[in-house]
Nucleic acid binder design. Structure first.
Lengths: 358, 358
DNA sequence: ACAGACAGTTCAAGTAGTTGAGCATCCCTC
DNA sequence: GAGGGATGCTCAACTACTTGAACTGTCTGT
């Protein structure tokens, strides 16, 4: 057991008494050029010695490592599902995703702040010659700095979940915010709400999606001039969720419904409502966004927009593969907008209910 | 932009007008053997051309790819933290973890059932010549089938979170179940509880930890003969959580405290309690395990054993690195037991409270 | 008997570097 | 003017395998 290490093709060839080239060809399936008995000998020898292909060598020779770098934030259940979609598609094509995290935004508690970290991580991926990159737009900085290089190396990039920037330089898969906003607005308006609040997250530069989500919602309500809408947001550190939530619920007149750009913010509203003795949904309707794993087990269960993260992941992976296989290699960058579903649960109700109790 | 691809060392050498070997040495930091002006020329050329080291080649030559395979279940917040610890340590050593999922147990909704999948995934890792493997014991099957091979290839394996098997064949990092069980038992007993239930999870073969957790708890209570303990478990599909929870709470006499082997099971108890009109903690104390992300936001917040997942991940990664660096290479397999902390929140209370109200 | 065809196999040059050993200068010493 | 030792750089072999081209031997057809 001491001298042994990974068996080489040379060993297999020797054991089968053929040349390395013959062994190589037979093991790669080019079998019809050889005698049946020879093939068997080689195959047996390979099995016996436990030989396996060395994708490092393949990578060197073909320039394809069959690895895709994935840079996304430390996961909540949304990102786990995105990853699941990515894994599923890539594994099917015998590709392997390599996932890295970057900690240069405060939402990520797992890493010490380090501005060069994004660069370091992307370097670690490129040094290993990944064939493509799937990334979350918050890594814009790291991405921009490497952009020229990625382009020159012809490494396809797909951005997931939220539009990357105005100038379409990479493919992008995102949730269709406008349709979502319309669906939420429609739902609340049809329930008779006329005074609605919107609670956004922190709206830091790397949380542009929060801005877009809030603005989409405001726009969607602009079609209903009879409805009053006021928006709020967390401070840049995201530390004042509960206070803001209370502030919203202390307004005169009090909003009868709150749309939160994320289920996380909805938690603050729940907490503030409990504190102020407001009942959900009798006194207050609440809508979240994302349908994170805890949304259904809140009391009452949270009405929320369920995105399709697995779908997003799947399409991102597929898009990368398409770009790599050349069919799609030279198309201009595309944006795919994925739908979402309004899951109506117990946290929203007719506004008339409130009137009846008043 | 069309003909360009990754720049080669040859290009850099040519641009700097030196031999490849000189360029190689200078770029790897062996600078004192060369003239300062030459070094500058090479460095400048490399920067200009955007050259970066090719770890595939390094991997071929040294047999070290600086990649560690990680096989863990689709993540809840516990596993996310484990991963965080792993990433942190490995990134510090310029290693990259490659995480794969396997779907051959039902807890994993993300993949279709496929018994060979574990094998396929482990193959995908070995084909890329990962230097080591961190894995979750549920992958025992895949692991056992590859065990001889891993041994012969001298790929170090570390098993995380729960003991792998009786015969110590790999390093193992686990939560110290016995100490945890003692802490929970101590907490409940000191609150005056005399009739305690334990709600285990499914106890399928690949959830051996549930068995161990339950048994440790039963043993811990054996030191308190005045306390009655009865255990329950979910069915093998995990579908009857709510029913079992109700059954527990309908016992005569009703247990005054329930220990759940996971926060997930505690959710069922909460739900059943709400359904039966029981108040937590006044009528019923509940203790969970893991301190998953939702535990603190339940109402009342859940008392639970907080494991140290980040620590577990960190130590697993460190152990792999130690084995690779040779210092530790020839030690027999070790087990590291990581502590955990009882987080007392609002779901547990003095049993006397209950008496006072009865 | 000899060309042509074909199966079965080998040669050698790639892939992108790394590295131990060695060589050419130049300066200084004796 | 030879010897010694830095200094600064290059040669060539090596990593593990792939692949286009070529070569050998046997069989067939004429």
């Amino acid at each position: 057991m001491s001298g042994s290490s990974a068996p080489r093709l040379k060993d297999v060839a020797q054991a089968a008494n053929v040349s390395m080239s013959a062994a190589s060809r037979i093991l790669r399936g080019e079998r019809d050029r050889f005698g049946e008995e020879t093939c068997q000998r080689v195959l047996d020898a390979a099995r016996q010695l436990g030989w396996r292909r060395n994708l490092l060598v393949n990578g060197m020779q073909t320039g394809r490592t069959k690895m895709i770098g994935v840079m996304i934030p430390p996961y909540d259940s949304f990102w786990v599902d995105v990853l699941a979609g990515i894994h599923l598609v890539l594994a099917g094509a015998d590709y392997l995703p390599i996932t890295v995290w970057v900690g240069d935004c405060q939402e990520m508690p797992h890493f010490e702040k380090d501005d060069d970290q994004g660069l370091g991580q992307i370097s670690r991926l490129l040094d290993r010659r990944v064939d493509g990159l799937i990334l979350w737009p918050s890594f814009a900085v790291a991405y921009y700095k490497h952009f020229r290089e990625l382009l020159e190396r012809r490494v396809p990039v797909v951005v997931v979940d939220h539009e990357f920037s105005e100038d379409q330089i990479a493919d992008s898969i995102e949730t269709d915010e406008q349709r979502c906003a319309k669906a939420v607005a429609q739902h609340l308006v049809s329930l008779g709400h006329k005074n609605i609040a919107c609670l956004s997250s922190r709206e830091t530069a790397w949380q542009a999606w929060a801005v877009r989500r809030r603005e989409s919602f405001e726009q969607a309500l602009a079609d209903h001039p009879e409805v009053k809408i006021k928006s709020w947001r967390l401070n840049p550190w995201g530390t004042d969720g509960l206070e803001i939530a209370e502030e919203i619920l202390r307004q005169e007149p009090r909003p009868t419904a709150v749309f939160c750009v994320t289920d996380h913010e909805a938690l603050y509203i729940y907490e503030a409502a409990a504190k102020l003795g407001l009942r959900i949904p009798e006194d207050l309707s609440v809508v979240g966004f994302a349908d994170l794993d805890f949304a259904a087990s809140l009391r009452p269960p949270l009405t929320t927009m369920r995105q399709r993260p697995k779908d997003i992941g799947r399409r991102a992976a597929q898009l990368i593969l398409d770009r790599l296989d050349g069919d799609f290699a030279d198309h201009p960058p595309t944006t795919i907008r994925v739908g979402a579903d309004l899951i109506v649960r117990g946290s929203t109700a007719q506004q008339s209910l409130i009137k009846a109790r008043d």
